[in-house]
Amino acid sequence: MIEIKDCVMAYNDTVALDGISLTIPDGCSYGLLGANAAGKSTLMKILCGIYKQTSGSVKIDGMDVYDNAEMKSKIFFIDDETIQFSSMTLKEMKKYYSAFYPDFSSELFDRLVATVGLPTDRKLHTFSKGMKRQAVMICGVSCRTRYLLIDEAFDGLDQTMRSIIKKILIDAMLDNELTVIFSSHNLGEIDEFCDRAGLLYNGKVVFDRELDDVESDIVKIRAAFDRDITADDLPDIEILHIEKSGSLTEIIAKGGTAKVRTAAEKLSPKFMDDIRLSLKEIFIYEMEGVGYDSSKLDD
């Protein structure tokens, strides 16, 4: 389990993380959301022991990560950059990682490489962007660590490459008790992969919840009333948004489907229907209250 308490990361005149606290249980697939320069990469680098936090504690399985070789052998960090591997071949990367990660699986590595059809004797700088990403992902998965941290996993990749990489990750997650942390500014990817998500904004965590709970809690209904309805007409539920469009009124509220429907039925609508919200819509309405501009997140 990953436990982050009051973690502050400040350098020069910048406060990248301002006292964040998070708990990520084992086996979880966690999506770390935020716009560019929100602090996602900084947090991931603290989690894998590259950076040391200015204050606060960051523990994995109850142990500090920084300068802890034993703990670091259970964590693999996949950077969004691949330039550091430019002069290496896949064969050399296999040798490199197998030397440092005790649970590295050569068999898994060879199988994955063969599956995606990557050449093992060519230097990585001759690969396409997608191929480089695949190569690094295969190395990460083959190390068979308990924690996999992936920074901007699918950034810049086409749909085919995304599918391949997703399959590699899903297989690995299904096969091992693997805790994966994705960082992304893409809500759709997080929605697709993750069962829990957190949002970083101004160095703080403004959102940290199971996605199923989020989706089941916020409801959108569209109804036709014989008069204009305001939030005051629905005191039993927490209204996030009311908008009238022609004869229809859209109500977005918290409380779950049953509760919201019950409250709306008291106003005797001529017509009522509940509509599933996308994660982005949830974020837009949820985060408006804290001043976060959800348009920074991609679909």
């Binding site: 680098k45 070789a69 964590i75 950059e81 990660y101």
Partner: peptide, 16 residues
């Protein structure tokens, strides 16, 4: 900078 993540994430202590 390009080697910072690669080298510092390895499971070795600073002393090693």
């Amino acid at each position: 900078k390009k080697y910072v993540n690669m080298d510092l994430s390895l499971p070795v202590t600073h002393r090693q």
